[in-house]
């Protein structure tokens, strides 16, 4: 059982009466982020202009990949990574899967969707079913095409390799949190002649995607997907807010570096950021 007294014994006194130790800056940063996003969303809802999102080649290539699969009469494989349902990369994959499923439904192309995580499988099943419904093709939805393979990384890997070898997808879309299995999937995708699109923020796997996939979405590009695909101004507002904060963070890094060079012992910015 949870023991509040044990926690109380270790818990430092609150900062400014209410905040946990070291959580003031995260709170201010998070609140400011919400405010900026809210302002941008309000502008978007009021029909006022907000900046456009630049072209993301990897997402544009999704249409090309599905089109190619349709012409060849072969399926599309979509892997949402091997991360948990709470992983932001997996959540980013949901939006792209919805789009891919809808396109596949419209073109009557088979979509094979494989999963390692059981919660992700449950969500993806719902997404694919809903997308076929939205496309007006509920009859074309085949529950056997959304597949739970295994909770174990290498068993999942082996299962997907078997599917790719047997069912020879013409497009392999790998969108999510990928690890050591990346290169194996890409090489087998290459062997079966699939056009390959990869997206991850797992830095160790990015070089493999860049070297072996046809299109790669690097880092935060994958999080702009839902806004980019849905063309919703409200979602675009959150992406613009994200960019404003990126500029702010890099400004803090530059100022901090200059202050550190001036007086390495007493950097006021570092003191504020670590104390609060």
């Amino acid at each position: 059982m949870l023991n509040p007294l044990m926690i109380l014994a270790d818990l430092p006194p609150p900062t400014w009466g209410i905040f946990a130790e070291g959580q003031v800056i995260p709170f201010l940063f998070g609140t400011a982020f919400v405010v900026v996003v809210y302002v941008l969303i309000s502008r978007a809802r009021a029909g006022e202009p907000i900046p456009e999102i630049r072209k993301i080649a990897g997402l544009d290539a999704v249409d090309e990949a599905i089109g190619r699969a349709t012409e060849m009469g072969r399926p599309v494989h979509f892997g949402p990574g091997i991360g948990a349902v709470s992983n932001a990369q997996t959540i980013a994959a949901f939006a792209v899967l919805g789009y891919v499923a809808k396109m596949c439904a419209q073109y009557d192309t088979q979509l094979i969707q494989t999963n390692r995580n059981i919660y992700v499988y449950a969500v993806n099943e719902e997404i694919v079913k809903q997308s076929y419904l939205e496309a007006g093709r509920p009859d074309a939805y085949n529950p056997d095409d959304v597949r739970y393979i295994s909770g174990f990384q290498w068993a999942y890997c082996a299962g997907v390799l078997g599917i790719m070898e047997r069912e020879k997808p013409a497009a392999n879309i790998m969108y999510g949190s990928w690890f050591a299995e990346t290169m194996i999937f890409l090489e087998v995708g290459n062997i079966v002649g699939a056009i390959q699109i990869g997206a991850t923020t797992n830095t160790a796997q990015l070089p493999f995607f860049i070297a072996a996939a046809d299109y790669t979405l690097i880092g935060e590009e994958m999080f702009a997907a839902s806004a980019y695909i849905s063309k919703e101004p409200v979602l675009r507002g959150t992406v613009v807010g994200q960019d404003i904060f990126r500029i702010l963070i890099f400004a803090i890094i530059i100022i901090g570096t200059i202050l550190q060079q001036i007086d390495p012992e007493e950097n006021p910015l570092a003191r504020i950021l670590t104390e609060f």
């Binding site: 998070g30 982020f33 919400v34 996003v37 969303i41 349902v85 932001a88 959540i91 980013a92 949901f94 939006a95 792209v96 899967l97 919805g98 789009y99 809808k102 969500v123 719902e126 997404i127 079913k129 809903q130 997308s131 939205e134 999080f223 839902s226 806004a227 695909i229 849905s230 919703e232 409200v234 979602l235 959150t238 992406v239 807010g241 994200q242 904060f245």
Partner: peptide
């Protein structure tokens, strides 16, 4: 962070089916 914010504010609904917002 932006994704988390979109989910908490109910703006991101992709995980509930479809890709709409």
């Amino acid at each position: 962070m932006a994704t988390a914010m979109r989910i908490i504010l109910g703006l991101e609904r992709a995980h509930l089916g479809g890709y709409g917002a």
